[in-house]
Design a protein around this nucleic acid. Sequence first.
DNA 1: CTATAATAATTATTGTATGAACTAAATATG
DNA 2: CATATTTAGTTCATACAATAATTATTATAG
Lengths: 137, 137
Amino acid sequence: MDHHKQTTLFSVINAGNALEEKLSGELERIGLSMAKYGALCTLAAAEEPLPLSVCARQMTCVKSNITQLMDRLEKDELIERIPDPKDRRSVRAKITEKGAQLQKTGDEICALLEAELAQTLSAIDHKSFRETLHKIQ
Amino acid sequence: MDHHKQTTLFSVINAGNALEEKLSGELERIGLSMAKYGALCTLAAAEEPLPLSVCARQMTCVKSNITQLMDRLEKDELIERIPDPKDRRSVRAKITEKGAQLQKTGDEICALLEAELAQTLSAIDHKSFRETLHKIQ
DNA sequence: CTATAATAATTATTGTATGAACTAAATATG
DNA sequence: CATATTTAGTTCATACAATAATTATTATAG
């Protein structure tokens, strides 16, 4: 869904969306969406199964979203839900071997896009560009 | 749904998402979403009712998406569907007075955010920043 | 002219995201 | 200790975006 305003505001928004679409197109070929890949990254970085509420906090989304996302990831056998004996309210998401492998493949795809982007932007100072963008968040 | 990779790729994606979220939060206060505002902008710029397929093309999204979006806009009385006597397959979306007014209010919100962004980025050359971002799309 | 193609829009299904209402369990407070 | 509050997760309703399949109409080819 594109917008066509010639402003810096929409330049940033459209550039972000264009890259997101490109990345999500690549991820799709290995059966991942941005949401699934993001969840797998969070779980892979954690090195221990995370409570779903922690996932929601780290991924800055609401709990109900995580519930559904984990449902889909579980159906794909990329994670499994395990009960937490310390807190019987809590459910922890544990990344499977299959999930960990797919996450790594996703990282490789990101690295390729990052390299491609570096080419596109070769004329400018990446670090200052990134710092500028970071001000926006 | 945030991602946390420290790359230029995700700097652009996250910056775009941050601005989009900010804008959509402001638009929400006048009852608009990004999708609704985008459709109203397209129709307001056209100065004549547009066939839904033309809307889909201009907004780079699929027709089924437009069908649903126009359903919601029609329920809000921001557009109305009118039949096309020239081609009985075609349905044209006509922006209402209420829709046109809301679209203008949306433009004002965008202008405020653009000004705010200009402040944030005051140290850099906006034009070259925009051109850099434009390479990405 | 008739059979076939292409086009316009809708419906149905799925994925992603949010918020509200709910259940169960843990924690805090009187 | 009993009650109230908070926290964890799910379910439900809604919005938005995409795909595939369907219907209706128009255009094209033989």
